[in-house]
């Protein structure tokens, strides 16, 4: 189901995120996704995140479909030229994929193959335009396509940046190019997010605020130092540091953040980074999900 349809129906949309493995065995990933799926509307499948070589997003999305999991197909500009990108979009449609998130992609220098030749034939704005154009029945140079393409295109934005204006300008361009939903980089401060939302009032597009699950204070500090646009406020870092149960505190924090921001936007995108099984608890803490009653242990086996 397209995310736009859910949004249009007035639902507060929730997406999760998983990354395909290095290898060919998807069984664990599918299992994790299944624990996640009841609590979310769709699951992003990353496209070789952090410029690291993994099993492909497209194949994973296809397997998800076969397992009744609703994927958001992430597609970056890093590794494919315009020919391959258009072709992959056609493939996605053929495989029944409906949601596509278009990104620039981390630079190969940040990944495990820094010697790779980056492609970036087109950028994210241009790829959104190309994808929109495919929906009109022709490829980017005007050749007619058979069959129908009706993709729900999404894009990303970084809500906390200095300067912020270039992000907003680019967001405008992405929306103009056909982005129908926006997922943001992880936000840890509701007041920052509010400022951002005020700054983009003129842009008519649903925003899904990004929530990253903190695993420890060390991870928080690492992100503060190394991940552009992510700022974990010191009290939250302290809270994690003093936590008796990191997992519990992490869930509390994420739930609290969603609660603080859910009225400002149209959805939430949770980046659980391997803690997929905590996502339902987070959503429950945010009042967006009701946890199923615990079954007895025996029955699990």
């Amino acid at each position: 189901m397209k995310l736009t349809e859910l949004i249009d129906s007035g639902k507060f949309v929730v997406t999760g995120e998983v990354g395909p493995p290095k290898g060919t065995d998807l069984s664990d990933l599918v299992k994790e996704a299944k624990t996640l799926m009841p609590a979310v509307d769709a699951i992003n499948v990353t496209d070789m995140q952090s410029a690291t070589m993994y099993l492909g997003s497209l194949a994973t999305c296809h397997i998800f479909k076969e397992n009744d999991l609703e994927p958001v197909y992430q597609l970056t500009c890093r590794d494919r030229n315009r020919i391959a990108l258009q072709s992959d979009l056609l493939s996605a449609v053929t495989l029944g994929i409906e949601n596509v998130l278009i990104l620039t992609g981390d630079h190969p220098l940040m990944g495990d193959h820094p010697q790779a030749k980056p492609v970036y034939d087109v950028d994210s704005v241009q790829l959104l335009e190309i994808a929109s154009h495919l929906g009109e029945g022709e490829d980017m140079v005007g050749n007619e396509l058979n069959g129908k393409l009706d993709l729900c295109l999404g894009a990303v934005v970084r809500p906390i940046a200095e300067p912020l204006e270039p992000q907003i300008i680019k967001l405008e361009k992405k929306v103009k190019a056909g982005a129908r939903f926006i997922q943001t980089q992880g936000v840890f401060d509701a007041s920052h997010f509010e400022k951002f939302m005020n700054a983009i009032q003129h842009i008519d597009v649903p925003i899904l605020v990004g929530i990253i699950l903190l695993k420890s204070d060390r991870m928080a500090r690492f992100m503060n130092k190394n991940v552009a646009g992510v700022e974990v406020p010191e009290p939250l870092v302290e809270e994690m540091a003093n936590a008796k149960s990191k997992a519990k505190t992490s869930v509390q924090i994420a739930g609290r953040l969603i609660n603080e921001m859910k009225d400002m936007c149209q959805g939430v995108h949770i980046m659980s980074l391997g803690w997929e099984k905590r996502v339902p608890e987070v959503l429950a803490a945010a009042g967006l999900y009701e946890l199923p009653k615990k079954k007895k242990k025996k029955k699990v086996e």
Partner: peptide
């Protein structure tokens, strides 16, 4: 631009205005 982007920055620039590539 390390990615030859034509329509504005990616989300990777640092607070000091440096490229995400770490160069």
């Amino acid at each position: 631009c390390a990615k030859s982007l034509m329509n504005g920055p990616c989300g990777g620039y640092t607070d000091d205005g440096l490229c995400e590539s770490g160069t």
